[in-house]
Design a protein around this nucleic acid. Structure first.
Lengths: 217, 217, 217, 217
DNA sequence: AATGAATGAGACTTCATTCAT
DNA sequence: TATGAATGAAGTCTCATTCAT
């Protein structure tokens, strides 16, 4: 029994540590997103997380480790969206429609997170953690690979034009990011409108193009 | 006459001042693009521009003013691309194809410039120059408006689907940015391939969609 | 009876407390000697002593108190060496020879302990414990006084040159420290050689000088 | 002529830089000696040197570089003393007597400088500059080698006992350091007495020993 | 007009000490 | 009593900006 207790107590400690880490990441994430990584000070993070400055160092080795933690979170979330989407019932179109939905919601809630991340990731002065970052970046781009699968299926069964499926994913993703940027960054004040319609419109443009087709013959 | 002379001399001075400013902007631009705004020091800019550090302050009031100068340059260039594109002969499709060309070349040559700019522009703690920046941002988004014109024409004459033309521009631009990001940031090492083909492919997807059409039957 | 019990229990407690203090001092001493006082953290001491960090404060009021404890130990040991030496059978020469032996062994085993202590003791910004430190320092220099006794005897009975006996002790001690510094700090890698011979040589130089004497003639 | 001017101006700049470096070293040296290296803050050095904190970094890359600068100074001075001493007219005894004089004066003026230096030099966590420090340390011990020369001469011509000359230097130096420690550190308050007599006494003990010799018989 | 040495606010990080459990 | 998470003062170092030359 003492074993159980000790096990439980260890588990509780570990759980509490994880919880604190998440709290800190949450606070830092908000600030990083609204101000950028370099522009956010540890004092601000500590204040936002309602901890003392030194306490942060009990959970992360450096400011950079906090940033890496956030990136890991975001990458996991991105991958989750991709996997959820391809698990949707139906064909490619249905899956991408769901993906569009999810991405728009995600960006709406998380703002410029990806912008900040890309900004920091792709710079020359990558710090000591090059190896870890490389791995994370690769995982991140893995989301494209996940979505490429149903695309390939569509190509193989003759539903879609014959071309590089990864390329197609990139273009679709590009349209989504473009939309989100214009919608949430350039015109953030506009009241929420129908994001479902937006997702459908984008998906429609991607599959059918923008040329008007006199249906009927 | 002394007025004339003084006027001429002032004019020469003015011209020289502009020339110096451009040199500084050129140096700063290279550094900002490769290292980011915060990470570039005035020492580095001064060294790259082959001026003394103090001299920079004879041409710009602050580091931020230099950044604004670069943004202005970039916005002008972006607008120029938009105007050139819509001036191309032919219909919407030809104009957008040219735009795709131009954007890909531009990003290839200027790297992450836009990334850095967006990163800095859309931050909460915009400093004293809010007004000036707002104006620049608006001009920047003006490029979308320029491209929206031919789009509207296409819609009006029934060639294109009936929808918000600005929205369409945003999606097309998004595909281009997505492609460029994947091509120049994620896979920068890949040898240059046929960018014309890429531009045509993207334009084709945009106009015709990705669905395979059994032409005729 | 309860008094007795309580007294006994207190006594046991007291004994245990002393034991714990010694354990802590032992751990701290090793670290202070190899890393210096300022460079050793309480975390390291706690880990080395296999106690929790907070527990240390049940036995010492501050990091500085730990250091003082170590100094006290060292001073006691130094005095012990002095007293042992003068208790040796024989005359001044035999006593000092034993002292040389002891000091060399002690420095060999305790490394730079004295160096660290002197370094910390003789600083301008002596903290709150000035009084206590002064007292300890005086005790420490007392070792010289102890050794001065047989020296004075030698002077009085005409065996040694007539001069200040304390001065002589200081010079002899200096030679020993010089030897130890060169032997254990400058050339620590050299394999152990005959320290007895060294002690004898030093003692011989001190008593007889370095001038070659044509014995007899 | 412009060449000459430019050459002169460069030289002036260089000279001024050296002068500033020396000012900073002077200020830092005083503080390091009285408080120790770790205990002296950059703010204090800056204040003592009457410079802004940032200015120090125009002349030294880090606090550690300042310390290294001081060590280099001290080592040069030590070597100078050694070389001056062996250049003195007369035999070994006269040379060592001069050395004793010089060392006592030097320690009187520079206090615990060497103590601080040794303390910092011989520790485990030697920083990045291991190579440079090693070289400096070796130069420093070179002073012993310099003094060993006349010692060897004395041995060779039969004046001195046959033994390792370096060993002898170490012992003589030890006596001097011991004397200085007792005189300037332990009893700093004592009014200046006759240091010449002290130097002569120490030299006499070293050469002749402390045993009373019934001259004549 | 050109320069770069001087400046000090502010950044990240460490660590002795406290205190709730 | 034993613990170690929490704390914030204090340390080193950076860099945009100023100003005397």
């Amino acid at each position: 029994m003492s074993e159980l207790i000790s096990h439980e107590s260890l588990s509780r400690k570990e759980r509490e540590k994880r919880a604190r880490q998440k709290e800190i990441l949450k606070a830092a994430r908000e600030l990083f997103v609204s101000k950028g990584f370099r522009e956010t000070t540890l004092d601000e993070i500590a204040h936002q997380a309602e901890f003392g400055k030194g306490t942060l160092y009990n959970y992360f080795d450096s400011k950079e480790e906090i940033f890496i933690g956030i990136i890991e979170q975001a990458v996991e979330e991105t991958l989750a969206i991709a996997y959820e989407s391809i698990a949707a019932p139906g064909g490619v179109r249905e899956k991408l429609l769901l993906y569009a939905h999810r991405v728009i919601s995600y960006v709406k809630d998380n703002g410029e997170l990806f912008h900040v991340i890309y900004h920091e990731l792709h710079r020359g002065d990558a710090p000591a953690n090059v190896a870890k970052l490389r791995e994370i970046i690769n995982r991140s781009h893995g989301a494209w690979g996940v979505l490429a699968e149903p695309m390939r299926t569509g190509i193989d069964d003759g539903t879609l034009r014959n071309c590089d499926p990864l390329q197609l994913v990139v273009l679709f993703d590009g349209m989504l990011r473009g939309y989100c940027f214009q919608r949430f960054v350039v015109e953030p004040a506009r009241p929420d409108d129908d994001f479902s319609a937006a997702a459908e419109f984008i998906t429609s443009v991607f599959f059918d193009g923008i040329v008007e087709r006199k249906s009927k013959g």
